[in-house]
């Protein structure tokens, strides 16, 4: 089992296409949940490291962040899987929603690197926030690429369709959040 996990994890970093095949065939739910929990813990610790907090307050933020962050991450995972599946249905491609859910869980693996990179960024002194943002951007791009590959695999569609399935909901969310931001700013200005 450890051999299988190690191989899948290694492939995910070096040969993601092969890793997708293995995950699709083997359905390693335990590995998927380990990646999900590990990536979120790493992200939360990394995020806390980027903030000017410490001591008892840091402890409180961390406990709150771990409890809330993992619960929110699980909810986000379910919602994102549902939204991408809906998007795929709209683009008239067929696939298994459960398999997509599992694949997207595997795609969170780059999140494991947030904590080590945050420590590196913290060591950059004054430029730590810049480097932290840069690392987070890189990890998110990596996760996006893996997610697109997962969508392509699950729905056996072209790269163009996979990109559409991935980006159209994101664009929609972007537009809605921009609208909400403008509304919130206007409300605050009116207070």
């Amino acid at each position: 089992m450890i051999e299988y996990f190690s191989k899948t994890f290694y492939n995910l970093i070096v040969r993601p296409r092969d890793a997708m095949e293995e995950v699709s065939r083997g359905k390693p739910w335990v590995l998927v949940f380990m990646i999900f929990v590990g990536a979120h813990v790493s992200r939360i610790i990394g995020g806390a490291l980027s903030l000017p907090i410490s001591g008892g307050f840091g402890r409180a933020v961390m406990v709150f962040g771990l409890g809330f962050g993992i619960a929110a991450g699980l909810l986000n995972w379910i919602v994102v899987s549902g939204v991408f599946h809906l998007s795929a249905e709209l683009w008239k491609v067929k696939g298994n929603a459960g398999e997509l859910f599992m694949m997207l869980g595997v795609c969170m693996a780059p999140g494991l690197f947030v904590a080590p990179l945050s420590i590196i960024a913290r060591g950059m002194g004054g430029a730590s926030l810049f480097f932290y943002s840069l690392f987070i951007l890189g990890i998110n791009v990596w996760m996006a690429v893996l997610s697109i590959m997962a969508i392509k695999k699950v729905y056996s569609c072209s790269m163009e369709k996979a990109l559409r399935i991935f980006f159209v909901p994101l664009f929609f969310v972007f537009v809605v959040s921009m609208f909400l931001t403008v509304v919130i700013v206007l409300v605050i200005a009116a207070v």
Binding site: F9, P116, I119
Partner: peptide, 18 residues
């Protein structure tokens, strides 16, 4: 990779709560 991730999480926890 996994050991460095795990170690970083531990170091991160110490840095945040100290």
């Amino acid at each position: 990779i996994l050991a460095s991730c795990f170690l970083s999480i531990l170091i991160g926890v110490v840095l945040v709560i100290k």
